[in-house]
Design a protein around this nucleic acid. Structure first.
Lengths: 165, 165
DNA sequence: GGAAAATGGTTTTACATCCAACTATCCTGC
DNA sequence: GCAGGATAGTTGGATGTAAAACCATTTTCC
């Protein structure tokens, strides 16, 4: 496919119709909440990753760890509902946390289907470290949102999650 | 905390130490923007899915289609930057759009590394249909956010994406 | 008491996504 | 011009995710 036409067209000098990132036309996307929610979440996710680079745990697992820490004995299904991920997603996630000795999974005698999830001491330490990372990440977000808007912004986010959940 | 430790098991009648979703303790998560951003985005994603169930295209591809439609001739790299996904993610995504005859990918003679992406007529039709779905999804979001807050909310989201990007 | 429905978890399948390494093409400096 | 660096896109490997089918157990209801 060498396209041997040797550039007979050779428009040559035109500086290219290439688009700079800044001049992209987003059309209706530009005014849509859903789109910007997605973009903001992607950016926030990446920023969290920067703060927690050393510690090797994703935001999702961090949320899981926090909820387990605060609600010892919680079941996997309840956990999955609370953090908004599918229970089938949680199976390998919890598995890896158990393998890393951060979470303990014990059967109950009352209901032999469920597990009780609790943190190990190592899990509690990890949670403390991660909470520090998240705290710094939150400081970044707070600085951007600003103290005036913060409460209202949070309220709106919560409302979206509740009413669409 | 609960944990009456009376459980010699066989408590039988106790309505279960099971947690209802409503009474989960989220600890510091409860006040964090990053967490609620994530939850809101998950909910929004699912709601979009409900509206676009018939049409078989994810939000990410929808965004790609829109940007291509608005910026005919855009390159894959520029597209990936604009919608915030990795260029390697885009390779199979564009591939499937091309296979479904929604997008055309043409080589340029000036720079034989890049592709020019454009919509096919079928792609434009698909974009119109999807835009209708997204419009309904947006209506849901608008109803939740409310007209008073909308502009400020959007401004804040945009700021987060920009400053953390 | 037992069949039927519900519930907790796992497995399987199918993608989406990122990162790092790679190929092919271009651009730059000498 | 041509070697070395940049850039466009692809590939491979690892992980995250959801949905559906599935097993084991418990609960409901007759």
């Amino acid at each position: 496919m060498g396209r041997p036409s040797t550039m007979s067209k050779a428009v040559a000098r035109s500086p290219a119709p290439r688009k700079a990132a800044a001049e992209i036309d987003f059309g209706p996307l530009a005014g849509w909440i859903g789109f910007h929610l997605r973009m903001a979440q992607i950016a926030s996710f990446q920023n969290f990753g920067r703060h927690a680079r050393d510690i090797d745990l994703s935001p999702g697992r961090f949320a899981a760890l926090t909820v387990i820490g605060r609600n010892p004995g919680i079941s996997q299904t309840a956990l999955s509902k609370s953090i908004g991920s599918d229970k089938s997603t949680l199976t390998p996630a919890i598995g890896s946390l158990v393998k890393r000795n951060l979470v303990r999974r014990t059967r109950t005698e009352q209901d032999r289907r469920t597990y009780r999830l609790t943190l190990t001491p190592a899990g509690e330490k990890m949670l403390r470290d991660l909470t520090d990372c998240a705290r710094r990440h939150e400081d970044d977000l707070d600085a951007i949102v600003g103290p005036r808007e913060r409460a209202q912004f949070l309220r709106t986010l919560r409302k979206i999650a509740e009413e669409l959940g």
